[in-house]
Nucleic acid binder design. Structure first.
Lengths: 110, 110
DNA sequence: TTCTTTAATCGTAATATTGCAATGAATAAA
DNA sequence: TTTATTCATTGCAATATTACGATTAAAGAA
């Protein structure tokens, strides 16, 4: 069906999956990495850095924005994108909470 | 096109995206959480825990296995799945490397 | 052997994603 | 005003994902 049964899972599980999904594409990883590297806000030259057409990049930016990972502000004729500080730290904690649940001592695997 | 231009990105970016993609579904998050909770290996009762039909769960397990997140061993008539210890720690480091790149002091956002 | 159990695979339908050319909206420059 | 510039949106084609019924394969029990 191509339609996820979100109703059947908890909010946390759906939120976690949503963040992962937003980062589940090399172009979006590349965008985030670039924004992290430039550190202060950067405008639409993200398009120049990526090997994709402008509409495609715009689409990826939209998905990252919808997920709350980045935010953008109008600056004259161009738009300034940057990592959303609060959400970035929140997501880091969420993901770390999952990964750190692993107890390598107790976990006697097959 | 629905076809990701993987060639245009680095191996690291593609690998990172692949791990994220494997966890980009609430059912797969739920599977991982369950395996983390049970700690030692657990067999096909994952199907009982999830609100999905057996073939669907099997499909999700396959994707997690392909991504290297879990591994399975035949145990009589049933199969025992568990988190892959080495990869789990590797993925944690990879993701942490991305998230910790953020310098909240330097990052003067819009 | 036959029957049961467990889980993968096949086949299919519905929906989502990816990518881009073309277009549109908004501001700046001439 | 007209013309660029910058970026979002639209519309479309190609491919991927999600879900499940039906079937299959493998191992154990009867």
């Amino acid at each position: 069906m191509g339609l996820t049964k979100t109703d059947s899972f908890t909010n946390k599980q759906n939120e976690m999956a949503a963040v992962m999904k937003a980062l589940a594409h090399p172009a979006r990883i590349a965008i985030v990495e670039h924004l992290l590297k430039v550190n202060n806000c950067v405008c639409g030259d993200i398009v120049d850095v990526l090997p994709l057409a402008q509409p495609t990049v715009s689409q990826h930016l939209k998905e990252l924005k919808n997920a709350g990972i980045i935010k953008g502000e109008i600056e004259g004729t161009s738009i300034c994108y940057c990592i959303d500080p609060d959400n970035w730290q929140k997501f880091q904690k969420t993901i770390n909470a999952l990964f750190s649940k692993y107890n390598i001592q107790k976990a006697k695997c097959c």
